[in-house]
Design a binder for these strands. Structure first.
Lengths: 361, 361
DNA sequence: CAACTCACCGCAATCGATTGCTGAGTGGGA
DNA sequence: TCCCACTCAGCAATCGATTGCGGTGAGTTG
């Protein structure tokens, strides 16, 4: 079938017809032709790992030809053959949540220099959508997954993990399996928050917990109970309300419930910043002065908190670093599949601002 | 995807060896074999556009075989052959800017149902990086580009556009070429802001303009001058300062310069919300009460502005809709290459909050 | 009954890069 | 002088899906 290539000879030049209006990008064969070698040789010369197999002079010629043509290997063709893609999937609930962009950037900043790219998908916390997205990622030959949507019970993730899919969880973990993860040290963070509040003189502290289907939600809630106990206070279950989502509206709803129950409290530790901001909405609704009557501590350290009214005291989480660390771990796992998988906890710190003060009276 | 794969016709099995630990995904040939037809026929049966070419019964058999195997076409192989990828490139400066996530979601929400996906890249406003990213997008066979990094002078974009690359600009436009774009009606927005301020009684209004290398920056600045004139005020060039970037720090720097110049003014129209928030930083530094001594209007309507101190009055831009509209336009252009390219302006609205008030005295 | 049409399906090439295998050529050692 | 080892480069298959072309069989018509 070499007949199909009238442009094979040295005269050639005809080659592939340049499409109107768009420049035909050179292929490996073009490079090979210009260098006067076979495509296979060109391929080996271009690939550093294979280069030792070709004569140094030949390699030079190929490299030069590639440079003059501005040759860029076609990643699609390469992926097809090698079943690799230099791409990792990044599964997050919703990019619109200010939590995620810094993580994404951290991931990309590590992936990029390593020659990898991230393919971002949103699941909106919808398991069906998540499944579809994961399927599509898999069919795109992603070499690994970074997942921010883990729930404690997450069979789909177990299955993938068992099938050998490389993955790293960020922000959250799963219950059963030993899937590597990168999370903040939530327990320590909550302890910091409670300690701060107790130090200010608060005795009746509420917790607006996040969804108990997520590790983050339960870990923080448990840490809250422990921290309360550690300070010699008695834990009052009625001061713990669970939010269905990590959102402002859920936070507002939870606080309203708490207020309406008329159990006294002077401070709240919110499951995250968004829940804390939901409290702000309720404060506005009901004319409750913060921090004068109720102090609030958030969690995460999202942007612009310093400009809120009042500036929100929060437990700061190094999201960018979560991203970089996760990406590094995933790359390690890809490079060396046998490697023992580990999970890391990143330190948090308390950022005291103006939403916390001594309790009134 | 069922784990057990009795699949693979009678003798078969030989074919591709199932990799350890991971289930071998079925290929078109597997489907064809199970259906007892040739791969070509299976391909046609699976593709709605080609289905009329095959017998209805055969098509049914193929569909059923595909279903039982859980067949998913390999998009890589398909892309290689068809030179299409069902993905579009999305070029933004920095995902971390709260402006972009809503746009991204808008884009994805339109692209998804159409079977397309978005490939997101950040350029950090670095032309070299941008060039590299665009190159990588092109090599991935993206079928079109949505670009949020346009500068007024942008030869790279001209070139791509001339080569027939389908693209839609969002948020910003370019000077020379007629590249379709989706932007907010910046001029009207600025007019709204100025009108509001003048209505409150302000006479000396400053403008902290965004970078004049971007259409957004110059359009808003020009609109500001016009709006001032339209209200019978005289435009004072010393009350216009240009920020180098669309950031808080740039905004703070600009305001400091303005303050230090000691030209009196009672209100500022900021180029965007971030610049406005930069003003807040300076207010804090210098104990300037806002809005009592200086009123501020932002631009964009980013999230959480209602919880700032003070809540920021701003010109709200429908970012999500910018995304959906841009995606629709791009899909149209892909479907019908001959179509006349248009540019759309989306309406803005003023959201009055507490950062603006009557001038003191 | 023969020739012709048409629907349907299979063959094989193709997209572009990678890689196992083979063969040509060279140099060295016995 | 002969043979072997070794380097290097080309051949062709392959990844999986798509598609132009050609062939087969059934049905139709003169």
């Amino acid at each position: 079938m070499s007949a199909a290539q009238p442009a094979d000879g040295p005269m050639a030049g005809g080659g592939a017809g340049a499409r109107i209006g768009s420049v035909q990008t050179p292929t490996l064969r073009d490079v090979a032709q210009l260098a006067g070698v076979h495509a296979a040789t060109a391929s080996r010369a271009l690939n550093p790992r294979m280069r030792p197999m070709v004569n140094a002079d030949t390699a030079r010629k190929v490299l030069r030809a590639a440079a003059t043509l501005g040759y860029q290997p076609n990643p699609i063709a390469r992926s097809l053959k090698t079943a690799k893609s230099a791409t990792v999937g990044l599964v997050i609930p919703d990019l619109t949540n200010p939590l995620f962009p810094p993580i994404v950037r951290g991931i990309e900043d590590v992936l990029g220099p390593a020659g990898y790219n991230a393919w971002i998908v949103n699941t909106d916390n919808d398991p069906d959508r998540e499944k579809a997205q994961l399927e599509s990622l898999r069919s795109r030959q992603v070499e690994g997954l970074i997942i921010a949507t883990a729930r404690l019970e997450h069979p789909l993730l177990y299955r993938l993990h068992e099938q050998g899919t490389k993955m790293v969880l960020v922000n959250r973990r799963v219950d059963a399996a030993e899937i590597p993860s990168v999370t903040a040290d939530d327990a320590a963070g909550v302890a910091l928050a409670v300690h701060h509040l107790v130090g200010l003189g608060h005795r009746r502290i509420a917790h607006l917990a996040g969804p108990q289907t997520t590790s983050t939600g339960v870990v923080r809630a448990r840490a809250f109970r422990h921290a309360i106990a550690d300070h010699g206070l008695t834990y009052d279950p009625s001061l713990m309300v669970t939010c269905d989502y990590w959102t402002e509206t859920a936070g507002a709803r939870a606080l309203r419930g708490l207020l309406d129950a008329r159990r006294p409290f002077t401070a709240v530790v919110a499951g995250n910043d968004l829940i804390a901001l939901g409290c702000y909405d309720v404060f506005a609704e009901r004319d409750i002065p913060c921090p004068d009557r109720i102090s609030v501590v958030g969690f995460n350290g999202m942007p612009f908190l310093d400009k809120m009214r009042p500036p929100l005291t929060t437990v700061s989480v190094p999201h960018y670093e979560i991203g970089t660390e996760a990406a590094r771990m995933l790359l390690d796992a890809i490079d060396d599949p046998g490697r023992h998988s580990r999970s890391v906890l990143l330190a948090t710190s308390l950022v005291v601002r103006r939403s916390t003060a001594r309790p009134a009276g």
